[in-house]
Amino acid sequence: MVIDLDKCTGCMACSVACQAENNISFRVDETDKLRSITWMEIYKLENGKDYPEYQFTYLPRPCMHCDSPHHSPCTFVCPVNATTRDENNGIVTHIVPRCIGCRYCIVACPYHARDFNWWDPTWPKPMEQMLSPEVSTRMRGVVEKCTFCHQRLLKARTRAYHEGQDPNTVTYNPACADACPTKAITFGNLMDAQSDVAKLAKDPRAFRILAKLKTEPKVYYLSRYQWVHKLSDNA
């Protein structure tokens, strides 16, 4: 995935679409941001200057689906293999019914991409009607995170299979990329040198967050501002 921060206006449509697509629960008070479940978190980065030189930019952060050799930081530590990386497609999945809620993966992930279900997820009765049957609802005491809309991949693969095409070559778009009104999010196969994402990842504006940790995130960002590049890693 590549997210163009120059285009992104922080409208948060991506994050809201993700909530709707993935049956993410919400509570009456969501102002404790350290306990709020948001798979696509929108960070506000500031340039540190005073009025009127002050500037900020938004940075949407899904799971980075870290590509570090052998294991992602989170999959390495999960004692029960509830979160694993599918080496065929690179997606770091999370099997909710297997998660024991030890939160070791939360501790391991430097991007805060993982959220714990501190409460029983409940919906106001009428809103249960808008829950998608394509994504299972979670239960209290387990962790969850962005799955790169794994269910959409499975659907695309199933369709390809039925249409007699090779399921391994399908492309799809996650809900956030679909929703983005500025087309700031590009999604595709980084391994395919011809794909838009592979090309954008080589753009001079491209960078990754915390590159020095060698987590090899599969989410790239684009920005024309040096101060944003600087904020992406410890100097």
Binding site: V16, A20, M130, A179, P181, T182
Partner: peptide, 13 residues
């Protein structure tokens, strides 16, 4: 062109 805003995406609520 396929995009929506946050309010539209939450419209079912």
């Amino acid at each position: 062109r396929g995009g929506v805003c946050a309010l539209g995406a939450a419209g079912l609520q």
